[in-house]
């Protein structure tokens, strides 16, 4: 019994030391944090274009879209094996209890990223924001109601709207599956 405790203590402390040595996250947790950081960098690269702070560059948007797509779907979900939460990880247990929702969002990230690549050549729309139409043409029913997902035609969509859809996918996923801080 005592022996067991000592072994556990020894294992725990060596794990703790390794974790510290790698700046908090190790193994699969570090891998997925790195993947998120890569996507974050791409967001950071194109968001100023969407905000019209810098000139629009369709090629840069396409390459960002490819980065998102590469990290989507199974490439994303395989980084979250069951039991890989806790410690330095910021994942919530919901990722495993609501796995199909997580899978769906990971797939959606891929679909919207591919859509963004298609929309990239269309450039930016004339007005900022994705929901400006809610004040104008759309019916009041939807204004007072939920949001529905209509058929999406990315080839006729402007890049900023497509990018918003990608961004909202990131946010939806974070809202449920990343620890609130």
């Amino acid at each position: 019994m005592i022996k067991k405790t000592i072994i556990i203590a020894a294992v725990t402390s060596s794990v703790a030391v390794t974790a510290l040595a790698h700046g908090g996250a190790t193994g699969i947790v570090k891998e997925r944090m790195d993947a998120m950081a890569v996507m974050g960098n791409s967001v950071k690269a194109v968001a100023p274009m969407m905000r019209r702070e810098v000139d629009y560059d369709a090629e840069a948007v396409k390459s960002a879209a490819q980065v998102f797509a590469r990290h989507s779907g199974e490439a994303m979900t395989k980084l979250f094996p069951e039991g890989s939460g806790g410690g330095a990880s910021e994942v919530t247990p919901e990722v495993w209890s609501e796995w199909s929702k997580f899978e769906e969002l990971a797939e959606q990230l891929g679909a919207y990223s591919n859509g963004l690549a298609l929309a990239a050549d269309n450039g930016l729309g004339t007005s900022m924001g994705s929901a400006g139409s809610m004040m104008g043409s759309s019916s009041t029913d939807s204004m007072m109601g939920g949001t529905t997902t209509p058929m999406i035609d990315f080839t006729s969509m402007t890049a900023d709207i497509a990018f918003n859809m990608v961004a909202q996918t990131c946010a939806s996923c974070h809202a449920t599956f990343r620890e609130k801080e």
Binding site: A47, M128, A167, Q168, C170, A171, A175, K180, E181
Partner: peptide, 21 residues
């Protein structure tokens, strides 16, 4: 500019997307 954009999209200046509430 980026605060307006964040309230439209959830994207922060660091390239992150808001989580939580």
């Amino acid at each position: 500019s980026n605060l307006v954009y964040a309230m439209q999209t959830g994207i922060t200046p660091s390239g992150d997307a808001f989580g939580g509430s």
